[in-house]
């Protein structure tokens, strides 16, 4: 059995690795939840790299419908062709275009299908996919054909928990919640992204970063991707480690909301204005 072990670009926790392998073995979709910026989307890329399988990404937007993932019947094109005498108008199949799910089903080799941010879609969206994900097939009434998966794709679904997912859908998934990495894990992750990194700088960055995350009243806590950007900025700016804790340079990279920056400043000010 193929086992996912993480990749050179993606540091994976033991728990996550376990869940991925469970999902692959049980042939069920893996639902990944977690704070934004914990690398949910990158996981699918890492799996695809490590197992050497093609990755098909289906990005979900608020307007996405389940049908879009299966196939689209381009009726307008057909109408157009029929009016202007295009060839092959009788052939409906010409106007059936498979969606991402359909694509994943029709691959001869097992593919990895990432359904990204499923909670962005309408509430009913996951329910509309139950049968397709269960049976890995769907029927196209226009051509009276059934598209059936040649090789059951490995399905990874990510969710930011913006909406509750329906029970019936959840019951069919393997669930994993990505916890926010602790300092030790974070150090590993950061080292994967930087070739040369000053130890003192890293240590000071992480210390300050977790302090900021612990501030009460932040609307959006900084996450992994932000700390990586931040360290990059500090490196390029050539900031000395001692300065980091005192001044928190480039705080705008970590905190994206004005209110949060204000919160940070307020927490700092008592220290600076002592004796006031």
């Amino acid at each position: 059995m193929e086992q996912f072990q993480g990749s050179s670009q993606y540091v994976v926790s033991e728990e996550l690795m376990r869940s991925v392998n469970i999902a692959i073995a049980l042939r069920k979709p893996l639902l990944i939840k977690g704070e934004p910026g914990t690398g949910k989307t990158m996981l699918a890329e890492a799996i695809s790299q490590s197992l050497g399988k093609e990755l098909i990404i289906w990005n979900i937007k608020s307007t996405t419908k389940a049908q879009d993932g299966l196939y689209v019947y381009d009726t307008v094109q057909r109408l157009y062709d029929s009016q202007f005498g295009g060839a092959g108008v009788n052939d409906i199949e010409k106007y059936i275009k498979l969606g991402k799910l359909g694509e994943a089903f029709s691959r001869e080799k097992q593919a990895i299908l990432l359904i990204d941010e499923i909670d962005k879609a309408d509430l009913e969206f996951p329910n509309d996919l139950l049968w397709e994900l269960d049976k890995m097939e769907f029927y196209i009434p226009e051509t009276k054909k059934t598209v059936r998966a040649l090789e059951r794709p490995i399905v990874i679904i990510t969710s930011n928990a913006e909406k509750e997912l329906p029970d019936a859908f959840l019951r069919r998934c393997i669930f994993h919640y990505i916890e926010f990495p602790d300092a030790q894990m974070m150090e590993k992750i950061i080292r994967v992204h930087f070739d040369h990194l000053d130890d003192a700088l890293l240590e000071q960055c992480l210390k300050t970063f977790y302090e900021i995350r612990a501030l009460r009243g932040l609307q959006k806590k900084p996450s992994t991707s932000e700390v990586i950007d931040w360290i990059q900025a500090l490196q390029i700016g050539g900031i000395a480690p001692e300065k980091i804790e005192r001044e928190i340079p480039f705080a705008g990279v970590l905190l994206k909301k004005n209110e949060d920056l204000d919160t940070l400043r307020q927490k700092e000010s008592p220290r600076r204005t002592r004796g006031w």
Partner: peptide, 8 residues
């Protein structure tokens, strides 16, 4: 936990 529990 992965199989039975569906929310953190």
């Amino acid at each position: 936990r992965a199989v039975l529990v569906k929310t953190e």
